[in-house]
């Protein structure tokens, strides 16, 4: 009985809170420099071949929020929306895919 130190519910809550804090608050303090690929593209001269994608006018394009001027707030909203959208889509998919418990075993626990 050594393994679990906290309940699964507490673990999931702490994990989600951490993700929301990173995306909603911490991301404001992230480095604004271009990432590795962007930097290499600038330096070696193929950055100009990049085009604006079809999603460029999404309300959360480039991790901002349309209509919100303050980058701290706009970025935070985009981060929280992204984390929750990912959680819902991925969590929903995984709940659908998961192996259902054996009905016999389930009735035993009741």
């Amino acid at each position: 009985m050594t393994s679990p130190r906290i309940s699964k519910r507490a673990f999931l809550l702490v994990g989600l809170l951490t993700a929301l804090l990173i995306a909603g608050v911490g991301s404001y303090y992230a480095s604004g420099h271009p990432d590795g690929l962007e930097y290499v593209a600038e330096r070696t001269g193929f950055i100009d071949s990049a085009q604006d994608g079809a999603a460029a006018d999404s309300p959360f394009a480039d991790y901002g929020t349309k209509g919100v001027e303050d980058p701290r707030v706009g970025g935070g909203i985009a981060g929280v929306v992204g984390v929750l959208a990912t959680l819902l889509l991925a969590g929903g998919l995984f709940m659908l895919l998961r192996r259902k418990p054996d009905p016999a075993a389930l009735s035993e626990t009741k």
Binding site: L12, A19, L20, G26, V83, T86, M95, L97
Partner: peptide
Amino acid sequence: APMAGLVAAFVFA
């Protein structure tokens, strides 16, 4: 399954 959903959300963050 819930853990996997959380991992996806954490990777996004």
